[in-house]
Design a protein around this nucleic acid. Structure first.
Lengths: 228, 228
DNA sequence: GTCTATAGCTTGATAGAC
DNA sequence: GTCTATCAAGCTATAGAC
């Protein structure tokens, strides 16, 4: 409460607060309706800030979109790197694989964080499935962490073809993005048996599925889950 | 040539031709930039038809979008039903599973058709990952065929939890939509080893992966690929 | 069934006072 | 850093001549 020279009760230097409010609302709207489906006006209107604030703080609508992604990606990927690095190698290949995939998903499913990542997850599904955003966004924000995941998987299992691991991890990423977007499809298809908002369960089932896909197609993989 | 009463050299009754041209261009643009990312003006401009033609033939932009989907979905699903129905039950569970999944993918990968379905596949990835299109589009066009796929899988394998088959098929669909959208991600990640435009290969690898995920997680599934 | 013209709004972005 | 006013462009949709 100081910094006021004499009496400036209104014009507080809360630019950072405005910036954050815009980011939060933009994330929610972009997640729901996509980049083109949201106007700057709607963002500022629902943020309770002026129209010109977006261009002042972010220079352009597209730059705002990138800022929205950057806000989450950095923290999540840092956490992934830490968790994957902390995985203790086990003599059981399947357990190790499971641990790696779990470490990759964990920051994404937001186990105990105060942040709500549901909008970010929806947004990711949009980005990962759009050709246009690949070069502009995905490549920069996600390629490195995906390469790290692949390197860790390759240390555990070997495949017939060199290309296999890229295909399988790519399928895993596609399934992951769609599953965590919580579109409600699996709830509807299953007649309510499945709950797509139960992220821990989604994660566990996805890992079961992925481990099966990897283990059954790796060298000497049809058999047991025993040591390599 | 005829149907002209006296001399009508210009006003040919080629409304159907105009309609088709609009549908074709709209599919391509919607696939690339999404529903909101495309204006009616761009569609008519690139189609070489008048702006008002869209509203004349399709009543509204949203109805055009649904028409674009309907154009492909019906034929593809009819083909799927025929192919799945023609699968001969084998004593080998894995082979049967593989045949079912192959029948589901085959019309989608367009093995020998004259139609180019690449835009449709991109569009599907957009629809399947967007919450908003679930009720409006996906439910009507895709739920029945997905239920049929699930019913066929359940006849072959049994899972610990009743919910499992819904989760796994949902993962399969998410991976499928993303893989066939040809975003170029797997090509980039693999350093060019994988070619996402080689649809037959994508299909085969996806089926390998999915069969692994299903077989390894079904009752008495860790073991061999032998008879049930 | 095509084409022109236009109504009525919304868009992203900026200039300039405060 | 906020706020008003505004621009130039684009938008969906329709009316009416042909």
């Amino acid at each position: 409460m100081s910094e006021g020279s004499k009496d400036t009760p209104r014009t507080r230097l809360d630019g950072e607060q405005t910036r954050r409010k815009i980011l939060r609302v933009a994330e929610r709207l972009f997640a729901r309706d996509g980049y083109e489906g949201v106007s700057v006006r709607r963002i500022t209107s629902e943020s309770g800030v002026e129209l010109s604030a977006v261009n002042y703080h972010f220079k352009s609508k597209e730059n705002l979109f990138h800022s929205v992604l950057a806000m989450r990606v950095d923290a999540i990927n840092r956490r992934r790197i830490a968790l994957i690095g902390a995985v203790r190698p086990s003599e059981d290949v399947e357990s190790s694989l499971r641990a790696i995939l779990d470490a990759f998903c964990l920051p994404f499913t937001d186990p105990s964080s105060t942040e709500d990542l549901s909008n970010y997850r929806q947004l990711l599904a949009h980005v990962i499935n759009t050709k246009r955003w690949q070069a502009k966004t995905f490549q920069h924000h996600f390629d490195p962490i995906v390469q790290m995941l692949i390197a860790n998987v390759r240390q555990l299992v070997e495949f017939e073809d060199e290309e296999d691991v890229y295909w399988y991890i790519s399928f895993f990423l596609g399934a992951l993005a769609n599953a965590f977007a919580e579109t409600g499809r699996v709830d509807r298809i299953s007649g309510g048996i499945c709950d797509s908002s139960d992220l821990d369960r989604v994660k566990d089932k996805l890992i079961d599925f992925t481990v099966g896909g990897l283990m059954r197609n790796c060298r000497a993989g049809k058999g047991s889950s025993g040591a390599a």
